[in-house]
Design a protein around this nucleic acid. Structure first.
Length: 269
DNA sequence: TAAGTATGTTAAG
DNA sequence: TTAACCTACTTAC
């Protein structure tokens, strides 16, 4: 379930479990077999995440560039290593553990310059120390595109997906259809800082929780949420349900082929 | 068994 | 704007 927090968490998990060790590299499904053969038996030196892109560094300028897309999944497991199922694109293993990658949009061996080209086309990432929100602000403040679309544009800001997009706009009371140029610099600074906090928490817990303590089901005497997407949220996938704060009906719409959710009562144009 | 859905992206028209 | 790609799970028939 991949937004940026998932990928940063994966970078840490791959590094912790396989970093600094020689690993067996295979591609049971076959689409990565040639590259897997080249890497087999070499040491995983480092890992890195930028937005939703994951890089596994095998030294000598050899990187595996992974993008999970909508369906990709990574599962870690221990030893003994079980026989792989036929959808495993990439398996790393050593004597104590293994990890399987299934269904990624991208899994390719790339060089340093090719990796750099990926960084160059991504905007600043709230989860990368030192990334500059002003770079994103320059684009947002000059754009007639909606803030909802801009938050999903990885060239503008890297790592935000459909859940963080909907939730951060709700938390700041901003209507998703407001144009970027009509968002104030103060509002943008607050959105960025909030994303830093929310996404760091997401890396820690491996899920997306955006509801403030005073609005949780327990605090408000509501029944627990039924939806199974993992975290506690205000509007994501809550179409036609009452808003936790104003009680009005949460709306949903298609925006650039993705589901948008917002509360017209709490979010202002 | 088939259809529908999902926290994503790219390329073609 | 649409289709294509990748997987797994749920629901309908």
């Amino acid at each position: 379930m991949p937004e940026g927090h998932t990928i940063h968490r994966l970078a840490a998990d791959y590094r912790e479990r396989f970093g600094g060790r020689a690993v067996r590299v295979t591609s049971p499904q076959g689409k990565f077999s040639d590259a897997a053969a080249l890497l087999d038996g070499t040491v995983l030196e480092t890992t890195e995440a930028h937005g939703k892109h994951l890089f596994l560094g095998f030294g000598a300028g050899e990187w595996v560039h992974i993008h999970l897309g909508l369906f990709g999944k990574v599962t870690f497991g221990g030893a003994p290593v079980p026989p792989p199922t036929d959808t495993v694109r990439l398996r790393l293993a050593h004597d104590d553990a293994h990890v399987d990658l299934r269904g990624p949009t991208a899994c390719a061996l790339v060089t340093d310059p090719e990796k750099q080209a990926v960084h160059d086309r991504l905007g600043p990432d709230p989860l990368r120390d030192g990334d500059d929100p002003a770079r994103a602000w320059r684009r947002v403040s000059r754009s007639r595109t909606t803030i909802a679309a801009l938050l999903m544009d990885q060239k503008v800001i890297a790592g935000v997906g459909n859940v963080y997009r909907a939730e951060v706009l709700f938390r700041h009371g901003i209507d998703p259809y407001r144009a970027g140029k009509d968002v104030s610099e103060t509002e943008w600074a607050a959105i960025w800082q909030d994303l830093v906090t929310l996404m760091r928490e997401g890396v820690r817990t491996n899920r997306i929780d955006t509801v403030r303590p005073e609005h949780t089901p327990e605090a408000m005497g509501r029944p627990p949420r039924v939806d199974d997407h993992g975290g506690e949220v205000y509007v994501y996938r809550r179409a036609h349900l009452p808003c936790h704060i104003c009680g009005g009906e949460i709306r949903t719409a298609d925006l650039a082929a993705r589901n948008l959710f917002w509360c017209p009562g709490c979010q202002r144009r």
